[in-house]
Design a protein around this nucleic acid. Sequence first.
DNA 1: CTGAAAGCGCTTACAG
DNA 2: CTGAAAGCGCTTACAG
Lengths: 356, 356
Amino acid sequence: MKSSQSKVTKSTRKPGGPSIREIAQRLNVSKSTVALAVSTTEENCPLAPATRERILKACADMGYRVNSIARTMRTGRFNTIAMIVGKISPYFLPAELVYGAEDALEKKGYRLNLTWLDNRRLTSANYVPKVLEEWSCDGLLIHYATFLPKKMLELIERHQIPTVWMNSKLEHDCVHPDDFNAAYDATQRIIALGHKHIGYLHFHHFEHYSETDRFGGYEKAMREAGLKPQRVRVPPMESPAEIRVDHRQEIARKIIQARNRPTALLCYEMEVAAPILVAALSSGLRVPEDLSLVTFGRYNRNNTGISISTIQLNLEELGRRSADMLLKKIEKPSKFLSPIAVPLKMDSDVTLSPPL
Amino acid sequence: MKSSQSKVTKSTRKPGGPSIREIAQRLNVSKSTVALAVSTTEENCPLAPATRERILKACADMGYRVNSIARTMRTGRFNTIAMIVGKISPYFLPAELVYGAEDALEKKGYRLNLTWLDNRRLTSANYVPKVLEEWSCDGLLIHYATFLPKKMLELIERHQIPTVWMNSKLEHDCVHPDDFNAAYDATQRIIALGHKHIGYLHFHHFEHYSETDRFGGYEKAMREAGLKPQRVRVPPMESPAEIRVDHRQEIARKIIQARNRPTALLCYEMEVAAPILVAALSSGLRVPEDLSLVTFGRYNRNNTGISISTIQLNLEELGRRSADMLLKKIEKPSKFLSPIAVPLKMDSDVTLSPPL
DNA sequence: CTGAAAGCGCTTACAG
DNA sequence: CTGAAAGCGCTTACAG
């Protein structure tokens, strides 16, 4: 009978493999005993060592894997965090951000779920992500630069879902790069080299706090040094919201060729700095001798094949800190946690030198 | 008594909200009745409409959300797919790939889980991702360019976990861009413009099928036209594996200034094409008049602010197709599915013209 | 049309 | 040291 049973087990193998019940039957022990063997370590296992061995051997032979969903249900903890990502500027999801969050969560035994809020979903009248509609995670990481639909905010509030806002600057429960201080420090460093005419350059306007903060830090350093802050602008700006990629080089040229061009530029992002670099080089300027260049960016890399001094965002760290904050939040959902500003640092002086 | 009970319910509110039992108690109906009301649509609900209304009202009032884990356990379906991502060239995870997969899965009622295989995990002797160790998903999407640890492959095989390989070219169960034909078509198009001297350019070697296929398609078109395929090389190549970003501009200059420079270049990726463009422009060449440029890439965008004709990878589609293939695989785990080659297309002629 | 009951695969007191 | 039993929150035949 035993052998016929084992045959059955093999041939009618279920997709997920055997359960503790089947292991128990095979060995003529109770389910509890099997459960104890597989869910404890050698040290804290109350079973006789021989029993434990026998069971673990059978589990290995039969290909047992614990059903994590059953465990979840029993313990009442999902051990799952959902990350909600907004589809801003088509497909913006920095890999290092996800990696940092996932790695921090994995260390604490949590899984990461990913949900995208694309335009299709946001515009369909009553769309609500499954993760808010059903109860399936312990908390939310929200990576969404602009507004979040009101209905979703209400649900989060209503169900008191522990939530941390990534890359946003709010009253509490958020983690963001320390743009203000980074801009302040970088500007001070440029000033210390002797520059008097330092411009601040950006192409976009999409209402993210970083625009205000990067300019703010720059402005503060300039004023403290008695210098005049200056947003570099190209008068007939094509569109108030965004300059199309195809036109950036043209605009960069105008900036480079302007009569009273600054001796140094602080750029909002690499998408601004690199075109400027290209325009400068192809206009015969030397960088950094004729023009110092510092930019914010995810990493010191751009397509030109030439490095630019970059104030690096460290989004991996941002992901980690967000995850850690969320786990704290899950412990005490009602407690507001102070915002965390992740420090940034400039990676090199490669495009930075005193003015001629 | 009713009111005292509702007080209790309110004050001792559990983190996930009430369960059907609590709804049932409140309304003096059975759990089954509540379950029927919340898990059916108006049409196929066997309950009296008034009963259904009453229950749904109570659910809304009390903030009921179905516990998706309990449902999962009952039905035996996880409705979850895990995506395993390799940490290649630090943090390579194209957002559009994840988006495509997640969107296709969401439409079929599946969730997406993300696991990263970083170096720390891969080098710790016996690391196995939780998703393979426990039973917690219905299938795997693997986005991993190079090898996958043998132990993991064994587990996938052993537990017969339905798996689809993204961006890999294998015998079966994979989805990849149609690099060969895209390179072939693009090269034919360059030839049709009258170019005879067309070079193929790349900086990297990391043993991905796309390197062989892109060159292969190019080579085939060249030979068919009676032209000589030519890998453009810079003799003292700094390293066989990779050319550091800082040296790319220098190398690009050498290529541009070489005596017998091709009149057109097909580039493996934007990281090659953009430095060449910069080198060309700053050497006084006109693009495309003096040099036609076509590159493979995720999208027509690069930091220079100048567009380059790009053979776009369409990774969103790749994500979708992979997800759909996996769902098919889950239906029939034992059936091998034929590889899918996702078509690519060149987006514009902006850096393409006849030779002078 | 509604309710009582079984069961998904675990975990965890508790009994022996 | 091991087993019997209850229960997590659902779904789903089945009975009435």
